[in-house]
Amino acid sequence: MSLRLTDVTLTYPDGQSRLTALDRVTFAVPAGALAAVVGPSGSGKSSLLAVAATLIAPDSGTVTVAGADTTGLGRAALTDLRRHTIGIVFQQSNLLPSLTAAEQLRVMAHLDGRGRAGARTRARTRALDLLDAVGLAGQAHRRPHQLSGGQRQRVTIARALMNDPTVLLVDEPTSALDNDRGAAVVDLLTRLTHERGTATVLVTHDRTHLGAVDRIVGVHDGRLREEMVTESQ
């Protein structure tokens, strides 16, 4: 399994007591599969994603990414893990305003501050290939304010794939898009998951575009419930 959460519990401080956001969650995604996690507001979707992204440590339970147990890893080790094995697509196409579409991708080769010329040249080519793969070959030179919402979301997806991640985590990718564009983004994610063999978790409150996903998992009050698994997997 590329991503495995075992018996994960996460609580937040809530006045005197604590609020349980994830309640003994066990969840695994294999390579090349896309799991949609669906639930109402406040059910714990973002919390699940944050734990899987190693941005927050669970109170108990283990998170294994690409075979590596993340329990007890320090901040630097987690940063390295995120850079090498986890791709994140944020809810609001979180792009950097000063960079062009191609540069949003190339920045991934500069995050560790080590100047390896070879890697940076390869990043240049790979950025253009990925923009092409998400249908933005002609927009490589545009800055975020010159792109539509759907185009921005596709840049974010391409960026998440830059370092060839094992795990792809996607937070509400369709919330800022209209119906057609939302469907196109989910289709794109499904296709890329199958083509590139990522273990993809797509978190959303919106079931409209989930026709073609491999698996749907419901969340309610921090508990998961399997709803649909496609046989073809």
């Binding site: 941005l55 994140i88 950097l96 995050l111 960026r159």
Partner: peptide, 20 residues
């Protein structure tokens, strides 16, 4: 602040961000 949070989530080391 928001840009820095994104870069950190994407795997930028704090040392790199400070140096930049």
């Amino acid at each position: 602040g928001a840009d820095i949070a994104i870069l950190k989530a994407l795997g930028a080391t704090t040392a790199t961000l400070l140096r930049d």
